[in-house]
Design a protein around this nucleic acid. Structure first.
Lengths: 223, 223
DNA sequence: ACCTGAACACCGTTCAAGT
DNA sequence: ACCTGAACACCGTTCAAGT
């Protein structure tokens, strides 16, 4: 250590190192000090390629999302392609929770443009009429972002408490079950389902509700 | 200044002061130094009532959300009550963007339990069958959280750039319009809609898609 | 052009000491 | 029991100086 790098630094190398730190230790672990240590360099070298920490996080997020959205789903009908792309986003965010937190934070960045393009394009291919297209795309993208935020939050909690996922769910479930059924009838009942539910399946169920809603709204003849 | 408080401190007073600072200057403005100055007290006094900064943010969020969810919508049919509660959450998050950021961050806290209870309860009143109820509530809550995150991000950007809302939208719209129509056909087309759209209306359109989807899925007889 | 690393201006949080 | 504020262990970011 403490020896000088022989190869040149680049934004790509920096972003890759940042992503590795984020995957290993979560958002709190990404500091410029950790980054300089991993890259055997100084602060200024990093700032020469990257504007600031926010820029770095955004670039790392863009890289992950582009990998998912550019995965062409060949010869699949739009409905199935939408489910595949949605699930791809879900899995990517599950594997890299910091992406979820970032997506709910800087929506004008390239990563979100990619997502809008992919989902909007598939909805159009599905036959959603133009007047309904933008509301539909906005709703579906916001749903995905909502799940992304939740995933990130759960991952953060799991990182703090050492316990595994099922222990965590059991804990929240017990907490929900202990609420007064008179004041919280729904949440009290939901406690059981929470313990048994599958995140991926529930996510897909939400996508299906959306697609059914879009179909229902633009096909009915009477108000 | 620098004079000692005569009245005692309480968690409620601290949380209220924190909310005022957040409303005035955004999330970055809430520091323990700013809080001690506003309350004419020391750090230890605050830590005596509040575990840490995360606890403080969560408590402030709970207070805002409870105000919305406890607003009983009397004698309204479930469908209309769902729209009213959703819009109430949208407006509250619009007025306090830090609530949006926080909601996508600590989902096991009381604020989210309140939201699940309200929305889940209304979906049940709408006649959604039990087997579909929890997926439906999860999807709708995640949609609301997604919009919450976006709202918070937009507010953060508007706070940095001095420009107003329409100037911001015009800027993003111009950026989208400048994208290559061959590579980004949907986003390129969406640029116009983005400039003209109404956030509240689009949010409600998403809620309607959901409700239509839930109705469609649990009423159809054939698969 | 690209890199180094001491220094600056902040943070959240702790804790011995006060009343 | 409740409060004070100096001190600690961090941050992101800058910038004069090097190659």
């Amino acid at each position: 250590m403490a020896k000088r790098r022989t190869d040149g630094l680049s934004k790509e190398v920096i972003v890759q190192a940042a992503a590795a730190i984020l995957d290993d230790g979560g958002e709190a672990a990404l500091t410029f000090r950790a980054l300089t240590a991993r890259l055997s360099t100084g602060y200024g070298a990093i700032y020469h390629h990257v504007a600031n920490k926010s820029d770095l996080l955004a670039a790392a997020t863009d890289a992950v999302i582009t990998r998912v959205t550019s995965n062409a789903v060949v010869d699949a009908e739009p409905r199935e392609a939408l489910r595949t792309v949605s699930l791809g986003l879900f899995d990517a965010i599950d594997a890299h929770p910091w992406v979820g937190a970032q997506l709910s934070r800087e929506p004008w960045r390239p990563a979100l443009v990619e997502i809008y393009e992919r989902i909007g394009g598939l909805l159009e291919a599905l036959g959603v009429p133009e007047r309904a297209l933008f509301d539909a795309a906005g709703a579906l993208v916001n749903y995905v972002l909502g799940v992304a935020g939740q995933n990130a939050a759960n991952a953060r909690l799991l990182a703090v408490d050492q316990g595994d996922r099922s222990a965590f769910l059991a804990g929240v479930s017990a907490q929900w079950a202990s609420l007064d059924p008179a004041r919280y009838p729904f949440v009290h009942k939901a406690a059981t389902h929470l313990r048994e539910h599958d995140d991926r399946e529930q996510f897909l169920a939400g996508v299906d509700i959306f697609l059914a809603g879009i179909a229902a709204l633009h096909q009915r003849r009477t108000s």
